[in-house]
Computed example of a mutant assay.
Amino acid sequence: MQAGKKVSFSKTTITELMIPSYANFGGKIHGGILLSLIDKVAYACASKHAANYCVTVSVDNVEFLQPVEVGDLVSLHASVNYVGKTSLIVGIKVIAENVKQGSVKHTNTSYVTMVAKDENDKPTEVPPLILEESDEVRRFFEAMKRKELKFSFNKKMHETKEAMNLKEAVELLSDQKCDIRLPR
Rank of each mutant, 00 (worst) to 15 (best):
G26F: 09
Y43G: 11
Q66D: 13
I19M: 15
K40T: 12
K11C: 13
Q66A: 15
V62G: 11
N81K: 04
N52P: 00
V90S: 11
Y82D: 11
D39W: 08
E69T: 00
N81P: 03
E16I: 03
D39V: 06
T15M: 07
V94I: 14
A51F: 00
Y43F: 15
V94T: 15
S47E: 13
V57A: 15
T12I: 02
V83C: 13
L37S: 05
F9I: 01
N81H: 11
I89Q: 14
V80W: 02
T13P: 02
I14M: 11
N52K: 12
L65K: 15
I29F: 06
V94C: 12
E63C: 04
V70E: 09
M18W: 01
F25A: 07
G71K: 14
L65Q: 14
T13Y: 00
L65I: 14
T13G: 01
Y43I: 07
Y22A: 13
F64T: 02
D60Q: 03
C45E: 05
S47Q: 13
Y53T: 13
G91N: 04
S21I: 10
Y53V: 09
S21A: 12
G84D: 15
F64E: 08
I19N: 09
L34W: 02
V70K: 11
H30L: 01
V83H: 13
V90N: 10
V80H: 04
V62W: 07
K28G: 00
C54E: 05
S75K: 08
E16W: 00
D72V: 02
D60F: 00
D39N: 15
S58V: 06
Y53I: 06
V59A: 10
L35H: 02
S58P: 04
L76P: 04
L65V: 08
G71Q: 11
V41L: 06
V7W: 11
F9G: 00
S58I: 02
P20R: 13
V57N: 10
A42Y: 05
K11L: 02
T12C: 14
I38Y: 12
S87H: 08
